[in-house]
């Protein structure tokens, strides 16, 4: 059990229909501040009528291996948690917003109820308790969201990344994002 986990999310953009099921499930599961989103649906459409292509993605914090937010945080409130996930310790957060400015994905926001920064946690409170899924993954009607350990070659995420074509968001930002999208 000395092997270290590397938690990642693999999201299948081929099957995602952008229903926002993940968005609503996340809001209720995590008691997210009203009017704020830890995850969201992004679409891009290329071409012109009638030759069009569209990609739909459920996006969220990328839990980067080289997280700009953790580097920017002056108080250690942003930290690398279990499996390399990026977490925010609200007790240490001053709300200086340097992490928000540093995030190339604009994945963070200020929870107006506490004045501290909030974002996707990979539902670590569930994973930590031994639950196998995040809330968004749990509800996704199209089963497009997969969460797991990249260091486990037998995990679903490892297999998906080994067999399917994938990309990450803004890899040129050098953050080494840990949310992968399947084409």
């Amino acid at each position: 059990m000395s092997r270290r986990s590397r938690y990642v999310m693999v999201i299948d953009a081929r099957t995602c229909v952008g229903c926002s099921g993940c968005v609503i499930a996340c809001r209720t599961e995590n008691n997210v501040a009203p009017g704020h989103s830890r995850d969201w649906i992004f679409t891009e459409t290329a071409g012109s009528f009638p030759k069009l292509r569209m990609t739909i993605r459920s996006e969220r914090c990328n839990h980067c291996k080289n997280a700009a937010c953790v580097r920017a945080c002056p108080t250690g409130a942003s930290w690398y948690g279990p499996g390399g996930s990026v977490q925010v310790n609200a007790d240490k957060c001053t709300g200086c917003k340097a992490c928000i400015a540093g995030c190339p994905y604009d994945a963070r926001f200020v929870d107006p109820r506490t004045g501290t920064v909030d974002k996707c946690t990979f539902c670590m409170h569930r994973i930590d308790r031994g639950m196998p899924t995040t809330a968004c993954q749990d509800t996704c009607p199209t089963q497009s969201i997969h969460f797991g350990d990249l260091n486990d070659a037998a995990s679903e995420v490892s297999k998906l990344l080994a067999t399917r074509e994938w990309y990450t968001l803004r890899p040129e930002a050098g953050t080494q994002p840990m949310v992968y999208y399947l084409k």
Binding site: G35, S37, W40, R108
Partner: peptide, 20 residues
């Protein structure tokens, strides 16, 4: 390129404005 997002986080969208 047409893009849409359902994200509308205060101070973040449609454009970052956290520092004044």
């Amino acid at each position: 390129m047409e893009t849409t997002t359902t994200r509308a986080n205060p101070l973040i969208d449609p454009q970052l404005h956290i520092w004044h």
